[in-house]
């Protein structure tokens, strides 16, 4: 029982880790929590659905479609909304990002309605590993998620563009003075994060069902994972995702499942009350 719950927790974490890492990277350049990330996830899920089911193309093409669509809406939302509105108070921009989330989600709803959908995949019996049930899709999610998270970590740590991204997030002015093309790095960050959100939409659609609320429901657990890990750290976000994922599953032991949605919030609240900068985050210096 506990073993199965923990395994489910890891699958949960696999869904949360890539978007939590992307969220934390994006936070570095935006400086406010972007609530529209859930909508990018939703767009990714529906793009994959359109490619796989409506166009009848193989599932790997759907993955590419999801990433492309996620990158496109993320970049568009920056170009049309966030970039022109830079300079407003973070809270105002936060409300704007919710407005962007509403707009994207309702656009999806306009075309697809509120119905529940799934990919065109053959149903298979779950496999049994040491007495634990796991489906083939869930195994794929675990692998893809681990690979993506590792790749992003390597990109941030070892490549020139990754270092430029971190420098820009840390101090845009200084990075610019040192010859880092700020705008180009920002656009690259948006496209990369958008693609990860799109991919997360595909993964979520694989494990859960595809519906317009799919991304919104993931938003708070994603925030919880990123904040738990300390904003700005990819490794922290991964660890945060594992903790949140397992916590969400284990609470069914003490609380009715209907309260599962509140777990993400409760984790954030309790954590922030005692460690206002996250589990591994450092207090920032007020400039």
């Amino acid at each position: 029982m506990i073993g199965q719950l923990i395994l489910n927790g890891f699958i949960n974490a696999a869904l949360l880790a890539p978007p939590a890492v992307a969220f934390t990277i994006l936070f570095g350049i935006l400086k406010f929590p972007n609530f529209a990330i859930g909508a990018y996830v939703t767009v990714g899920a529906f793009a994959a659905f359109a490619v796989n089911v409506q166009l009848g193309l193989p599932i790997w093409v759907a993955v590419v479609g999801a990433m492309a669509a996620g990158a496109a809406v993320a970049w568009l939302s920056d170009a049309l909304v966030f970039k022109p509105l830079r300079g407003h108070a973070p809270v105002t921009l936060l409300v704007v990002s919710i407005a962007v989330a509403f707009i994207l989600e309702q656009c999806v709803r306009l075309f697809y309605g509120g119905n529940v959908r799934g990919f065109d995949l053959a149903l298979e019996r779950p496999m049994r590993l040491w007495g634990l049930r796991i489906t083939k899709e869930q195994l794929e999610i675990l692998v893809i998620s681990a690979v993506i998270t590792l790749l992003v970590h390597l990109l941030l740590t070892y490549t020139a563009v990754g270092k430029a991204m971190r420098a820009t997030a840390d101090n845009p002015g200084l990075a610019e003075v040192r010859g880092i093309p700020h705008r180009r790095i920002a656009v690259f960050t948006w496209l990369l994060c958008g693609a990860i959100f799109g991919l997360s939409g595909f993964l979520a659609g694989l494990d859960l069902v595809i519906e317009p609320h799919i991304g919104w429901n993931l938003t708070i657990p994603i925030f919880a994972a990123a904040i738990l890990g300390g904003i700005g750290s990819a490794g922290g976000a991964l660890l945060g995702a594992i903790l949140v994922g397992i916590a969400e599953e284990l609470t069914v032991l003490v609380l009715p499942t209907t309260y599962k949605v509140a777990v993400g919030f409760l984790i954030i609240t309790i954590l922030l009350l005692f460690r206002p900068h996250g589990l591994f985050g450092q207090a920032e210096i007020k400039k």
């Binding site: 406010f32 809270v91 925030f223 904040i227 919030f265 954030i268 206002p276």
Partner: peptide
């Protein structure tokens, strides 16, 4: 901080 307070 403001943005965390928003989430809480």
């Amino acid at each position: 901080r403001d943005d965390f307070l928003a989430i809480v």
